[in-house]
């Protein structure tokens, strides 16, 4: 098990390989469909938000206000990442991301951006909203809440030992491509 704390250096990211189990401590920014489209179209990050050497989490959490008016994340698993494929490579490049957390994997353009700019794709367990919410220790801030609505907003989350698996590394390795190719060959034998 590898432990990483944000901000993360390029060297540490380059050391990761497909199949490595990783636990993350530090800051995660959520961002999904609306945020990716907005940034890709030239939108700027709100003041106080920097993705440099950081991690974006494809997630639309359930967040409620507790009795004291503080935000509390009550469910926070990953959403399907492939929808961000048209935008992700550009955002890795422009904003200096070191990690993208999501589920289901991404395509060739993201894999190429991983390699060129030193980033990895980290797979969280889809549907495991409670186990992952337990790792979120606090909500530091929220941005674009009005503009994009709660699931699509940028939530700045403080996490501890957030469990993920490297499924696309910075050396061109993709578990998703490998499993697809193998399963396609196995299916061909059975038709």
């Amino acid at each position: 098990m590898t432990h990483l704390t944000t901000p993360i250096t390029e060297e540490k990211i380059r050391a990761l390989k497909v199949g490595d189990a990783v636990e993350i401590t530090g800051t995660l920014f959520t961002g999904r469909d609306a945020v990716h489209k907005y940034l890709h179209e030239g939108g700027t990050l709100p003041e106080g938000v920097s993705f440099k050497d950081g991690i974006i989490y494809h997630c639309g959490p359930v967040v409620i206000k507790d009795e004291e008016g503080k935000w509390k994340v009550t469910a926070a698993g990953p959403t399907t990442s492939i929808r961000e494929e048209p935008y992700q490579g550009h955002i890795i490049k422009e904003f200096g991301l070191r990690g993208v957390i999501g589920k289901g994997g991404m395509g060739d353009r993201t894999l190429a951006a991983n390699k060129e700019f030193g980033c990895v794709y980290l797979h969280a367990i889809g549907g495991a909203a409670q186990v992952l919410a337990e790792c979120i220790k606090s909500v530091r801030n929220v941005y674009f809440l009005e503009k994009f609505g709660s699931p699509e907003a940028i939530w700045e989350l403080e996490v501890e030992n957030f469990p993920v698996v490297v499924t696309m590394d910075s050396h061109g390795g993709s578990l998703h491509q490998e499993v697809f190719n193998n399963s396609q060959a196995e299916l061909a034998k059975r038709l």
Binding site: A21, P61, A75, V131
Partner: peptide, 28 residues
């Protein structure tokens, strides 16, 4: 395998959601 560890997280999640009476998955 990572398949086994995925299942273990799924199993823990099922228990935790029930115990806390919270959504199993955030996409309800």
């Amino acid at each position: 395998t990572i398949a086994e560890s995925a299942f273990k997280i799924i199993e823990a999640n099922i228990k935790l959601a029930k115990q806390k009476s919270q959504p199993i998955c955030q996409d309800t």
